[in-house]
């Protein structure tokens, strides 16, 4: 599982945010994780809980993870399709038989941070 490495990258970015904004601790963080990002939310939560103990400034941080469904658009007719479950995903437009391009669902981002 690579969620440990992802959690490490998150902490590195948070340390930068903390320095730049002269915070002493971070109270909450909002993350966006797309269903096609290859990251499992449960495993990421587990990794973040484990890594929290290692750094004083994130000891009591609350991580809010927003799961993003896959949304894709037909390049020909412009219709958009949303797939809550990647199992049911079909990236061919049922009307035009053209490939759909993914608009959402690959996110792996830090949205915002609260701290003091």
């Amino acid at each position: 599982m690579h969620e440990g490495g992802i959690a490490q990258s998150i902490v590195e970015i948070l340390a930068e945010v903390k320095e730049q904004n002269e915070l002493s601790c971070i109270t909450s963080v909002t993350l966006k994780v797309g269903k096609m990002s290859g990251v499992m939310i449960y495993a990421l939560e587990f990794a973040l809980e484990a890594i929290k103990c290692e750094e004083e400034f994130i000891k009591n941080t609350k991580f809010n993870i927003i799961s993003v469904d896959v949304k894709a658009k037909c390049s020909l007719c412009g219709r958009e399709y949303q797939f809550a479950d990647t199992d049911e995903m079909n990236l061919l437009c049922p009307d035009c038989q053209m490939p759909l391009s993914i608009i959402n669902g690959k996110e792996l981002e830090i949205v915002d941070v609260e701290g003091k």
Binding site: S9, L108, D112
Partner: peptide
């Protein structure tokens, strides 16, 4: 309490 908009890719360094 401060709210900071980050909007940063987690794997930006890798990219």
């Amino acid at each position: 309490m401060k709210r900071i908009v980050v909007e940063k890719k987690i794997l930006e360094k890798n990219d």
